[in-house]
Computed example of a mutant assay.
Amino acid sequence: MTGDSLGESSRSVTHPHHHHSSSENVPDNGKGKGKSKSNGNGNGNGNGETHPVVDFTAGVIAGAAGLVVGQPFDVVKVRYQTPQYAGKYKSTFSALGSILKEEKVRGLFKGVTSPMINGVVFTSYSFFMKMQLSPESNDEPSLGQIFLAGAGSGVVAATLTSPIELIKIREQSAPPHVNTSTIGVLKHIIKTDGFRGLFRGYQATALRDLAYGPYFFTYEAMLLLFKHLKKPPLPDNHRKHEGHTLIDEAEMELSSGLSWAELMTAGGIAGVTAWLATFPIDVFKTRIQSAPWSSSSVSSHGSTTTSPLTGSSTITTARTSVAVAKPTLWKVASTAVREEGWRVMFAGLGPTLIR
């Protein structure tokens, strides 16, 4: 997945097989099972479990690394999904060149999202896994349990992802000649729509971030497949799980006998699968968060202007006013498909998969 919550954040988190803490395997009870012992570097909590702060920090580092590589492609994705840019770019790389020419390097990094999103995913994944498994269990979590823990972590992360991506999308969809800032967009949203305006598109964001479920499910399923294809097949890892955090899982993967190429292939396939499962929701979420919406009112004899900074409408009224309709997921989705065809559900998929 990507760094935007899947994205985006998003969308996205990368499975942390690049992160593992030092540990040593010591005999457990003479039955051949090993137990990870903290090496005294402060990463443990005294009983072999990874401290939540370590989980969170690892997620933040992974998210920051993903942002540096993937942010330009995220900008292109949002441009493809925003109606006012329809037809402007011929391809992903022509879009990158056009943005670089018109907006300089800064344009490729508009709306950089917070890497804290990955930290929330790492921490909440561990929480949901512990809810399903006994602390004394030596069993590998099932694919179903992995799916539920991943999906739950995505919904929790959406609380942070939704307002961050709203600001990001407002910045990324602004016209090239408009200089935006995160603080400026934030102030405008609160001034125009109040604090609740920061959570426009939360429902769509939560539905999209359920993709962490199929992501982790597919990743683990691919590892099982690669182990089975070995000649002879690799034995199951009988090492005791200690906390069921993503860092614990990463340590076990590194000692599983699979190569880095196999681990990275599993991560790539998992990312593509997760995006394909929920990408239409991401398209409609972008449209919801970039569409004009104001808590003001409109008159039959009024005029409407749209702010180039945020896309919010400013209404000048003269007579009787009525409430402005707010975009809903169903309304945005049905209108887009009816007017632009089913292909609109995959607008921006190319740069997303490259990222």
Rank of each mutant, 00 (worst) to 15 (best):
G70F: 09
D248M: 01
K168L: 10
E220D: 13
M116W: 11
E251F: 01
A325I: 06
G213S: 11
G152C: 10
G267K: 08
D236Q: 14
P235K: 12
K331V: 05
R11N: 06
I354V: 13
G267P: 08
F217N: 05
N29V: 11
A318E: 10
G268V: 02
R319A: 13
I315H: 14
G97K: 08
A347I: 00
P16V: 07
W330E: 14
G44H: 00
N237T: 11
E339W: 02
N41H: 11
K33I: 15
S126L: 05
M129W: 09
T335V: 09
S5T: 09
T304Q: 07
R200M: 14
L143A: 12
M345W: 00
G311W: 01
E103V: 01
T320M: 06
G42F: 10
R338D: 11
V322K: 10
T286P: 10
S290W: 10
F217M: 10
I315L: 13
P214Q: 01
G152L: 05
A158S: 15
L223C: 12
V298W: 06
G144M: 07
L166Y: 12
F122Q: 04
F226A: 15
V75R: 01
L133D: 03
A274W: 00
T159A: 12
V60L: 15
F56T: 10
P16G: 07
V324Y: 02
F128G: 03
T205E: 13
N237M: 12
I288C: 09
S303G: 08
T310N: 00
V112T: 15
S296G: 11
H51G: 09
I61V: 06
R208H: 14
T273P: 00
L96F: 12
A333R: 04
E220F: 15
D248S: 07
A325L: 04
D209T: 04
I61T: 02
K231A: 14
F122T: 03
R338P: 02
Q172F: 03
Q81F: 07
T14C: 12
R208K: 09
G197P: 14
T328S: 15
S299N: 05
Y212F: 01
K110E: 08
R343L: 11
A211V: 05
S124K: 12
A64N: 01
A291F: 09
E242C: 10
L166S: 02
G107P: 08
G40E: 06
K331D: 04
D28F: 15
H228M: 13
T82G: 02
P83N: 04
D28N: 14
I164H: 04
Q81H: 02
I169E: 02
D139V: 07
L148S: 07
P232K: 15
G119H: 04
S296D: 07
T316I: 07
V178G: 02
S299D: 09
T192H: 08
V75Q: 01
T317V: 14
K326C: 08
F226H: 13
K231C: 11
G197N: 14
D193H: 11
R319D: 15
A270H: 07
N43E: 07
P135Q: 12
Q289K: 05
T320A: 11
L160E: 04
I117M: 14
D55E: 13
G144K: 06
N39C: 10
Y89Q: 06
L229H: 09
L254Y: 09
K285V: 00
T159M: 12
T320P: 06
K326R: 15
M129R: 14
